[in-house]
Simulated scan of single mutants.
Amino acid sequence: MNETADLPAVPVPLRLLNRPESWKVEGEDTLVVGAGARTDLFSDPGGPDRFADAPALVGRLDGDFMLSARVRLDTRATYDAGVLLLYGDAGRWAKLCLELSPQGRPTIVSVVTRGVSDDCNSFPVEGDDVRLRISRIGTAFAFHADPGTGFWHLVRYFALDGDLECGFLAQSPTGEGCTVRFEEIRFRAERLKGLRTGE
């Protein structure tokens, strides 16, 4: 699959990783991705289930950077999610999600996969949109979320080996599909200064 998307807010072309039901670029800084039914990216640490068919658009970003987006999720079913993604291969990736929880609440969720996935629910948010951010800091990565307060909350700080691509994913593991709007996408080729403060 060689099709790529040019998004002015991101300095590299984004390649398709699993074909979305739909996708489009709107203006300078918005990407809309539609996930099909029963699509997911997860490797169960307690069983044999491995899922790697959720659609994404990813590109290789070098050096220290910060990539953020306001995520608006058309929530329909449990685990529908809009995701900022780090991707090496099917067994090595990490995702920061705005995901609909089993309790029916949009929730900040992070997953890091090294062969199998871990899965951590951080905190619920009000409404159906939030800002998410991935930062690379040397050999480490940081996930932050801003639920509308203007403060970037640290969700996760971790390392993941190898060449990784970064981008945007939509998933609908239990549902009939969902649409995610990634708005106000911002890329900064800068090193995050305050890991705990999010500055």
Rank of each mutant, 00 (worst) to 15 (best):
G150W: 01
R76G: 13
A81P: 14
E99Y: 04
Y157V: 10
T113L: 08
D74E: 10
W152T: 08
G138I: 06
K95H: 06
H144I: 09
L41Y: 02
G148L: 11
Y157Q: 11
L85E: 00
R15A: 12
V109K: 02
L85K: 03
L195Q: 10
E21G: 13
G150T: 00
T197S: 12
V83T: 08
T174Q: 00
A170T: 03
S135T: 03
F182D: 01
W23G: 12
R72L: 08
G82S: 05
R188E: 15
G115R: 03
G91W: 07
S22N: 14
R19Q: 09
L195V: 14
S122G: 13
G34D: 03
P124R: 01
A81D: 01
T107N: 12
E3Q: 14
G59K: 04
M66E: 13
I108P: 07
A5S: 07
R133M: 15
V130D: 07
G138F: 09
E165I: 00
A37L: 07
S172W: 07
P8E: 06
L41K: 04
V116L: 13
S117D: 15
V116D: 13
G59R: 02
A9V: 01
P20H: 08
D49Y: 10
R50H: 07
V71D: 08
E176N: 12
L160S: 00
A145Q: 04
E190V: 15
V10R: 07
P124V: 08
R38V: 11
F151C: 04
K193S: 11
P11R: 00
T139P: 15
D119C: 15
T78H: 10
D29S: 12
T107V: 13
V32D: 05
R188H: 12
L31M: 09
R188Q: 14
D129F: 00
P8S: 05
S101H: 06
G175D: 07
P55Y: 03
G46K: 14
H153Y: 12
R92G: 06
P8C: 01
G63P: 13
L84D: 00
R50D: 08
R156E: 05
N121R: 15
V155D: 09
Q103T: 08
R196T: 08
R72P: 10
R70G: 09
A69T: 03
G138K: 04
S122P: 15
A5L: 14
R133P: 14
R38F: 11
G47V: 07
L164P: 07
A37F: 02
L14R: 04
F151S: 07
R191Q: 10
D53K: 02
R181D: 15
A170I: 06
G47H: 03
Q171F: 05
Q103R: 06
L86I: 01
L73K: 11
P13G: 01
A52T: 11
M1P: 15
S110G: 14
N18S: 01
C178S: 05
T139M: 09
C120D: 15
Q103Y: 08
V83P: 05
F65L: 04
T75P: 12
T4S: 13
K24H: 12
W152L: 02
G127S: 14
A189L: 04
R114T: 14
E165Y: 03
A77Y: 11
L164F: 04
F51A: 11
S22R: 14
P13Y: 02
R131P: 14
E26L: 15
S68Y: 01
S68C: 00
T30H: 06
V71T: 06
L16T: 12
F65Y: 11
S117M: 11
E183C: 08
H153W: 10
T39F: 01
